[in-house]
Computed example of a mutant assay.
Amino acid sequence: MTITPRAGCAVDAEGRIAFELPAANGQSLLLRLRPKKGQPEDTLHALGLDPVGGGRARALLDADPVLAEGRWDVYLLDGSERTRLRPGPRDLRALVGGQPDERRGPLAVRVPYVTKDGYLALRTWVRPAHAEVGRVDVTGGTLTFAARLYGASLLEGAEVRLRLRRGGGVVRTLEPLVAGDGRSFSFTVADETLDSGIWDLFVRPAADAPLIRLARLLDDVAHRKHVFVYPGATAGKAVVRPYYTVDNDLSLEVTRAG
């Protein structure tokens, strides 16, 4: 019976990830960007394994280079043979604070997690600018959201956009309440006329700026759709429920009585 090796990992304050597993000669660690269904594998990243004593070896994934956005599977590579790794202990305490280094350029987030079938993987995001969702309040028929921009500032003409998915370009706009730092903002949704369906949320930081998707990425939760679950706000005959998508983006689900 073959025992699948396990790799523990720890994330530090600089965004580096150290993997540790039983030592073996001539082996290395391989990260593979999971291809979309029907597409070939085309992005790999290999890491050397160095002995650290006690029959253990360590591989270090530095903060650079930035890994492409997606899901990366972790393998032990021995020549041309790959063995997918099971998770050992994961130390993600450095991610809990959720304060990225804004001097580094594009926002790059990497969160180790365990897949549904029990293997070790990384969830990564790369965003030129990002709107991090904070507090979500559901009170009666209103929803109030707080958020903060990274990589951009809110200027004249800033707006929040609700866009109906598969709605042929149907959009609603809201004016955000901007804090003195020009980065933090809040907005309220209290509209009983929203069409049924899924509405995706964006912020446009200035009149001529590109849209930035509202999401929550800056902590240790790789997949929050079934972790952060909110009740719906009832406005007239519409029930508006905020939720996070499989990519941790914020959306609204609107349903109507009857």
Rank of each mutant, 00 (worst) to 15 (best):
A63Q: 12
L77A: 12
G197A: 10
L107A: 02
V109M: 05
A233W: 06
T124W: 03
G26R: 05
A13H: 12
P35M: 11
L30W: 06
T83G: 06
L143Y: 06
D73P: 00
G38I: 07
V74C: 04
P210N: 13
A222S: 12
G54F: 08
L60K: 06
A179Y: 08
L92A: 09
G118W: 07
I212T: 14
G26P: 04
L29Q: 11
D91F: 08
A63S: 14
L85Q: 02
E81G: 02
A209T: 09
D247W: 07
A121S: 15
H226A: 15
L49T: 05
K116C: 00
A59F: 03
I3L: 15
G182Q: 14
A94P: 03
V126Y: 01
K36E: 11
L67P: 08
G169N: 04
L60F: 01
D101A: 08
R6S: 15
A257K: 13
R103D: 10
L85T: 04
G97N: 06
A222R: 04
P128E: 12
L29K: 12
S251G: 07
G15P: 01
A68N: 01
H226Y: 14
V96R: 14
A233G: 05
E69D: 07
D62Y: 01
P51Y: 06
I17D: 03
A23G: 09
L33I: 05
A152V: 02
D62Q: 12
E41M: 13
R16L: 00
V239Q: 13
L61E: 02
V74S: 04
L120W: 05
G167A: 02
G180E: 15
A68C: 00
A207E: 13
V11S: 09
G197P: 06
T234C: 01
T173L: 12
L60D: 09
L194Q: 06
V229P: 05
E175N: 08
V240H: 03
S184F: 00
A129M: 12
P242W: 10
Y113N: 08
W199P: 08
P128N: 09
P35F: 09
D181I: 01
S184I: 01
E20L: 02
V170H: 05
G88Q: 04
L155T: 08
L250P: 04
Y244K: 05
P51N: 10
R172H: 13
P22I: 05
Y230D: 11
G88F: 03
K116A: 13
T193L: 11
R123L: 04
P65Y: 10
A24Y: 05
V239Y: 00
A209Q: 13
L95P: 01
V114M: 00
G88R: 04
P176N: 13
L164G: 10
F19W: 05
E81F: 11
L218C: 11
T43I: 14
